[in-house]
């Protein structure tokens, strides 16, 4: 074959590359089981990148091909990187330079409920969440029903139907005002049998419930629940 783009890649080379790819797959799986902290993501991406380069260079024969095809492939990747980095220059840096546009308030799972970090010291989740929440402007007090609609409705029904949490039907008869208040402020103090612990605290934290709700509003929410 006279022409460069008809280069025949030897079987030996192809087999070697395949073996390397399999080995790298095993390595990435093993390293993912270890916790390398901030190195987890870069390492996994570096291994994936190496595998991709091997496939492109040998299996796709870019190494032996007309250089223009390599330029084409490079352009594709370069512009994907441009897309990624300039988009992240916005999304990852909202609030940079002390200017906070309307947009996302980054949310982090409280470390206490993150299973992967079980060995770490467990800080008080509520305190952690309150500490990290950005300042929120004073809003007019909301009614108990409005709070229910905003924070509770997704998981707790009023009519006895089954949702992720227990129903509120008849909760005014079965619980005292104090028990209701406690269940809101410290959801894991008493857990209704058959329902997962920590889920409610996690969800309410994520919704900024504790940092945006005043004592008076919680009072009115309790009053609303008492009437059920």
């Amino acid at each position: 074959m006279a022409h460069g783009s008809h280069h025949i890649v030897p079987i030996r080379t192809l087999a070697t590359v395949f073996a390397v790819l399999v080995a790298l797959t095993i390595i990435t799986v093993i390293t993912a089981q270890l916790d390398l902290g901030p190195l987890n993501v870069p390492l996994a991406l570096a291994i994936a990148g190496t595998k991709a380069v091997a496939v492109a260079a040998i299996f796709m024969a870019l190494k032996y091909d007309n250089p223009v095809n390599m330029v084409v492939a490079f352009l594709g990747i370069a512009f994907a990187v441009v897309f990624l980095s300039l988009t992240l220059s916005d999304t990852a840096l909202r609030g940079a330079l002390g200017i906070q546009p309307a947009g996302h308030i980054p949310y982090e799972l409280p470390a206490a409920v993150h299973e992967a970090s079980a060995s770490a010291e467990e800080p008080d989740a509520v305190a952690l969440a309150e500490q990290e929440m950005p300042e929120v402007q004073e809003a007019p007090a909301r009614s108990g029903e409005a709070l229910y609609d905003q924070f509770c409705k997704t998981c707790h029904s009023l009519d006895g139907s089954v949702l992720p949490g227990p129903t509120f039907q008849g909760i005014g008869q079965s619980r005292t005002r104090e028990a209701l208040t406690e269940s809101i402020l410290d959801p894991d103090a008493t857990i209704t049998e058959g329902f997962p612990p920590q889920l409610m605290l996690l969800t309410l934290n994520a919704l900024n419930f504790y940092s945006t709700t005043s004592d008076a509003e919680i009072e009115s929410l309790v009053t609303f629940l008492e009437a059920q």
Partner: peptide
Amino acid sequence: GFLVWGHHMFVAGQSALSSIIF
């Protein structure tokens, strides 16, 4: 032409740094 798209979004709430770059 691929590096300037954010100038359509100066008042849309993108990060200030991003706006300056674009």
